[in-house]
């Protein structure tokens, strides 16, 4: 490590020991012990950094801010006993027994080729092919065409471009933060993908069910593994959705 490299590292670190686990910082600090020029630079830099940090830390928020923030605490949404429940068709993410159903679907998937009708077999083959395509697309780390963290704006723009528009999403998928979107062609049909993240990165692929001659219909989600990826698939309101994560299926199931 040269002195200039050490300066670059120490300029970005907190040499006061705030982040002691960083090996590069430790190496740069060790060099400062033997290089007087670096040691003098570090002393001056640290003194300035410390003074500037203290100045920033002296800024106090308005006195009522904390109370306003505490008032934002989410309330419990347990339904009151007297609330009437009106039976309505429910999407899969609102139905009970979801996890067990998803697991059952995954197990039954292996028997599908034997048990299902020819059209269903074709639908499953279509789905497998689409899975392979979007998994390969995801692995290629595609660039986003448009960056946006506003799902409504993404919907609007996709609609204007004649691309598949995602409808209502399951709550925990909807809760992911959007980064942007892109589009590509699949067998001459448009596919939209939306990059999302929480502490993991996801792509949500959206394609019209009309893309397929035998359209898969998946009211209960399928969660399957494909090598290093996990894919969750469902259909709703004429769209087929595939949510992909680089991880295992258990991580995806937490979004159910």
């Amino acid at each position: 490590m040269t002195i200039e490299e050490a300066k670059s590292i120490l300029a970005a670190a907190h040499p006061d020991g705030s982040h002691p686990d960083d090996a590069e910082v430790a190496q740069a600090l060790k060099l400062a012990e033997t290089e007087p020029e670096l040691a003098a630079w570090l002393a001056e830099e640290s003194a300035f950094d410390s003074t500037f940090s203290k100045a920033l830390e002296s800024i106090e928020p308005p006195t009522d801010l904390k109370d306003k923030l505490l008032a934002l605490e989410p309330a419990s949404h347990e339904p009151a006993q007297e609330d009437k429940v009106i039976p309505m068709p429910t999407p899969w993410w609102k139905s009970k027994g979801l996890l067990s159903a998803a697991a059952t679907v995954a197990i039954l998937f292996g028997f599908a080729a034997i048990l299902l009708k020819p059209t269903q077999v074709q639908a499953e083959a279509n789905l497998t092919h689409f899975h392979d395509s979007v998994a390969n697309h995801f692995r290629s780390n595609p660039k986003l065409h448009v960056t946006s963290d506003d799902l409504d704006k993404i919907r609007s723009q996709l609609g204007e471009q004649g691309q598949p528009v995602p409808g209502e999403l399951p709550p925990k998928v909807d809760a992911l933060l959007e980064l942007g979107y892109g589009t590509f062609d699949y067998q001459g049909h448009p596919v939209a993908y939306i990059s999302m993240h929480d502490d993991d990165a996801y792509h949500l692929y959206v394609v019209s069910q009309a893309t397929f001659d035998q359209a898969p219909s998946i009211e209960q989600p399928q969660v399957v593994a494909d090598s290093d990826l996990a894919l969750m698939t469902w259909t709703d309101q004429g769209n087929l959705y595939v949510l992909i994560l680089r991880g295992n299926v258990e991580e995806l199931k937490q979004l159910l």
Partner: peptide, 10 residues
């Protein structure tokens, strides 16, 4: 540096 306060820093 020693005359810095929060608002000057900002």
């Amino acid at each position: 540096a020693n005359t810095l306060d929060g608002h000057t820093a900002v």
